[in-house]
């Protein structure tokens, strides 16, 4: 199956081509798609490109930010509006990968990838598809390999007040490498108590995910050693972490509370 590449001026045309062909894939930055091409992946034979400049734009709309799906990690790092996402974007790959890797591709990246997606999950992310329909991020992740495939045009996130958003990527490779566990958290407080927390992991399951058990355990808790105790106990409840070259499922389970604690309490 030799590969064919089709380039479209409009996102909508590309989306139509994508939904109509099981063997087609939309390409963002290509960091994962091209590896598959190089290694002879037989599951697709058509690459779709879209030149629509809107896909590479970052816009502020009130307290929300709209990020085009072909915005790269390097573009995030160059954006003052997205300063809160800089530690996240910097955690992805090395500099060359960041110049290529896109936001849209990160939503579809398979384990152990998806660091940015974990962050988006706690930033109240709304996904806009090429046809204009919207979806929640958990819904998109659940269906991301279903046919017909959808084309993501942009994501919209809230801009957090300072101190609310926390992010930690744990890797065993120095200075950086593939994630053992990535944790993103959105921890608003009122009256010294946590209220409406959102916590997400990447590299702890088949897709990045919200961790409801931890979120519930944090509700009303104080942000200190004893306050977060229940949340730490719930760190992996209902989760079956994967075993891969970086860590076993058992290891991930063992260290999850430690890293969750560091994320929540700093240090």
């Amino acid at each position: 199956m030799s590969i064919s590449v089709k380039t479209f001026a409009s996102t909508a045309e590309a989306a139509t081509a994508l939904s109509g062909d099981r063997a087609a894939r939309f390409m963002g930055g290509g960091t994962l798609i091209m590896r598959a091409v190089n290694e002879g992946d037989q599951s697709f034979n058509t690459i779709l490109l879209a030149n629509d400049p809107a896909l590479t734009e970052i816009q502020a709309q009130g307290d929300r930010l709209i990020i085009g799906s072909r915005v790269t990690m390097a573009q995030i790092l160059a954006s003052r509006d997205l300063e809160f996402l800089h530690p996240v974007a910097r955690a992805v790959g090395g500099p060359a990968i960041r110049n290529m890797a896109t936001v849209g591709g990160n939503l579809f990246a398979e384990h152990p990838y998806g660091d940015l997606t974990a962050a988006l999950l706690v930033l109240d992310c709304q996904v806009t598809l090429a046809g204009g329909q919207t979806s929640t991020l958990p819904d998109l992740l659940r269906d991301r390999t279903r046919e017909p495939r959808v084309l993501v045009a942009s994501v919209s996130i809230v801009r957090p007040q300072s101190g609310i958003f926390k992010f930690r990527k744990v890797s065993r490779v120095k200075p950086k490498g593939v994630s053992l566990m990535t944790i993103a958290a959105w921890i608003p407080q009122s009256g010294g108590r946590v209220s409406g927390a959102r916590v997400a992991y990447s590299s702890m399951g088949p897709t990045p995910m919200r961790v409801q058990a931890v979120e519930q355990a944090l509700e009303g808790a104080t942000l200190d050693e004893t306050g977060v105790g229940n949340a730490l106990s719930a760190a992996t409840s209902g989760i079956e972490p994967p075993t891969d070259a970086i860590a076993s499922s058992w290891y991930r389970r063992e260290v999850a509370p430690v890293h969750l604690k560091r994320t929540l309490l700093g240090g």
Partner: peptide, 9 residues
């Protein structure tokens, strides 16, 4: 290379 890979598959 790609043709060889496709044939291998």
């Amino acid at each position: 290379d790609r043709q060889a890979r496709d044939a291998v598959a």
